[in-house]
Design a protein around this nucleic acid. Structure first.
Lengths: 156, 156
DNA sequence: ATTTCCCTCATACTTTAGGGTGATTTGAAT
DNA sequence: ATTCAAATCACCCTAAAGTATGAGGGAAAT
C-alpha cells in the first residue's frame, strides 16, 4: 500500500527527501561553524552553490518543454473514392434526376435494354432519356456522353 | 568601440552587473549582521532564496529551450496522377498495339467510322479490331470496354 | 520451312443505338 | 386554373455497332 503510494509520487517523495538531507547538511554546517571556527563566507558560499543548483534543477523540472508542431504534408494518391457530384454542372445542364440515373448506368456500360430492366422501365423510355441526355450534353453518342460526364464530374 | 562591445555582450554584461549587485547586497546583509544582531537563519534563508532564484534564472538563460517535435502527417490528395500505362495488363490481355490505339480512340467517344478515318483504315477493319478488343477484355459493348480499360489503367 | 500472330479488308447478318414525333400523366410553380 | 417540366411509353425509321467467318500479306519466332 504505502510502497505503491511512494512509487506513484516518487518525484514528490524524492524532492522531500532531498530537502531533508539538504537541511541536515545545513545544520551540520551550522554545527561545524560552532564547533570549528570556519569562516562565514565559506558557509554562505556553500549555501549559494547548493541553492543555485536547486534553482537550476527546479527550473528544469518545472518548465514544460516547448512543443514545435511540425506539419508534414504527405502526398496520397487517391483513385476514384473522392468523387463529389458537381451539382452546379448538373443544374446548369438541367439534367433531371432520372437522366442522371440513366447516365450513371450508361457509364457502367449497360445497354439501353439493361438500363430499362434495371429501372423497371420500357426500352423506349430509356431511349427518350438517352436522347435528352445527349441533347443536353451536346454529344451524339453514349460513349461521348460518358466521356463528357466524367470530365464534368457528374458521374462517379 | 566599448559601447558596441557592451551591446554585443549585453547578456554577459548584465550577468556581471547582477552578480556585483548581489555581492553588494550580501555584503550589506553581512554588515547588517555585524551591526544589528540578526539571526543567522534569516541570513541563510535570504541567501537560499536569492540563489535559488539565480539558479532558476541561470537555467532558463543557459539551457536551450527543450522542444518536443510533434510531427503531424497531413494527407494531401493528389489527383493529377498523370496516366501511366499498365504494361503488365496490356501484355496479360495480349492487346496488340493497334488494338490499344483503337481502344484509346473508342474511349474518346469516336464512332468506328471516325476511328477508321482517323487511322486511315476501313470501317470493317475497325470493326474487327473492336471485336477482338471486346473478346480480350471479355465485354460485349464499347462502353463496357472503355469502362474496363479505364479500370485496368490501359487507357488515359 | 512452318507456325503464329498481327493487320488488313470483305460479306452477310443481327442487334443496339439514336432521331423524330406524339401522347398521357403527374406534380410543382405561377 | 393554367402552365410547364418531368417522366413515361409508343411507333417508325436510319445509323451505328456488333457477330461470324474468311482471306491475304507480312513479320517474327521456332
Amino acid at each position: 500500500m504505502i510502497f505503491k503510494f511512494l512509487i506513484r509520487n516518487r518525484s514528490v517523495f524524492l524532492y522531500g527527501i532531498s530537502l531533508a538531507i539538504l537541511l541536515l547538511f545545513i545544520k551540520w554546517l551550522e554545527w561545524r561553524l560552532i564547533v570549528i571556527d570556519y569562516t562565514i563566507e565559506l558557509y554562505v558560499g556553500a549555501i549559494a552553490v547548493i541553492f543555485t543548483g536547486l534553482g537550476i534543477w527546479l527550473a528544469k523540472k518545472l518548465t514544460q518543454p516547448r512543443t514545435n508542431t511540425l506539419v508534414i504534408e504527405k502526398q496520397v494518391l487517391v483513385k476514384t473514392e473522392h468523387f463529389v457530384l458537381n451539382e452546379a454542372e448538373v443544374t446548369r445542364l438541367r439534367l433531371s434526376k432520372r437522366e442522371l440515373e440513366v447516365l450513371q448506368l450508361m457509364a457502367e456500360g449497360l445497354s439501353n435494354l439493361q438500363i430499362a430492366d434495371r429501372l423497371f422501365l420500357s426500352l423506349d423510355t430509356i431511349k427518350t432519356h438517352s436522347s435528352k441526355i445527349f441533347e443536353k450534353l451536346e454529344v451524339q453518342r453514349r460513349t461521348q456522353a460518358v466521356e463528357m460526364a466524367r470530365k464534368l464530374n457528374i458521374i462517379s
